[in-house]
Design a protein around this nucleic acid. Structure first.
Lengths: 192, 192
DNA sequence: TAAATACTTGTACTCAGTTCAGGTTTCGGC
DNA sequence: GCCGAAACCTGAACTGAGTACAAGTATTTA
């Protein structure tokens, strides 16, 4: 990892942590992009070269962690059934972001309007997941692929929504497992 | 329906149709709120008293149609199993918005960034649907209720995403039925 | 060391969204 | 029909997000 790349990641993390700290302290609306940039020792222009929007800075994935997760997806070659393997990939995601997750969740609780952009976070890993599902499904059934992707994400998001950030991340993982299991078993059935 | 209420609905519809027309003609980014307001014969301030944002004007439900759908939900008392009844409620939604749906879908195809706010449209009926589900589920199982809501919406959205706006709305309905059936049967199972 | 390339910065701009004070329209009671 | 209250519309002025760009600085490669 060259000097340049290292500095870039460092800057990314400085901006993100500064942003989440300020927002936790003062609330989302009371913090401007200019505040964040100034506090992170960077210009407003540079802020927008790292993050496409103010909302993104709160929810986007750490580039390195995302890369690690992508490697896991590519390497996934277990003999588990599709849905179980998919569940594990979502559990992997929760492993990658234990640091900021409680802060982000608290932010969401206080500011429900941000849920939309929090969901947008999924866009960063959805394409990889979609390709992975398509690979494991018989010949190009696009509708089924998209449905598996969207429904599994919905189950995942449901678990995150239901999770109390004051509880441990393990609690979240249990809920993720439950939601994915229920969705996999079929929601038309009574609880089983 | 008093004079006041009627005028308000009329203004709402004028603004919406003007907005969708201009956006179809020139593209989303090339139309400003000021353009829409001017063309609709109303002030910018008034625009924002009808719609919370520029994105909302393209996707929000017609208040009257939403009210009609709510009446359907409240009246729903068939002896169908939960998941079938839920499917019908989603099909009812597609019945309410045949007029603008193709335009909206074309807008989404050309401008994928708007998908987030299109999903936000669901927020207008989600609470009603949630209450309906909770009523039909054994004692306050919040997690299960939310999961049913989120997964059924995900299946619905999948169908809309997969739908080609040049096809008939009946095609969309078929896809909605398919997606809901698959999700209800359990996605861990092979296609059935 | 020098040229090419990537990154940062300040400036200036557009436009979404909010606030507010004042004017206009509609409504209910008489 | 008349009048006061309430709802509604409007223009003006403001904040702050996001973009474009030209000039400067650091990094890489040869």
């Amino acid at each position: 990892m060259g000097h340049r790349e290292r500095k870039k990641l460092e800057a990314w993390r400085t901006i993100r942590s500064t942003a989440l700290r300020l927002i936790s302290e003062r609330g989302y609306d009371a913090v401007s992009v200019e505040d964040i940039a100034k506090e992170a020792g960077v210009s407003r222009t540079t802020f927008f070269s790292y993050f496409p929007s103010k909302e993104a800075v709160a929810f986007e994935f750490d580039p390195q962690e995302l890369q690690q997760w992508r490697a896991l997806v590519d390497a996934e070659a277990s003999d588990q059934p599709l849905w179980e393997a998919l569940t594990d990939l979502f559990l992997d995601i929760t492993e990658l972001l234990p640091e900021w997750l409680p802060v982000q969740k608290r932010l969401l609780v206080e500011h429900p309007g941000l849920i939309q952009s929090a969901r947008g976070t999924c866009d960063s890993f959805a394409p990889d997941l979609r390709a992975w599902i398509a690979r494991r499904l018989p010949d190009g059934d696009d509708l089924r692929t998209t449905l598996l992707l969207n429904v599994s994400m919905a189950a995942f998001i449901t678990a995150v929504e239901a999770w109390d950030p004051d509880d441990s991340v393990d609690t979240l993982r249990d809920t993720v497992r439950t939601c994915l299991r229920w969705a996999g078993a079929g929601l038309a059935q009574p609880v089983g």
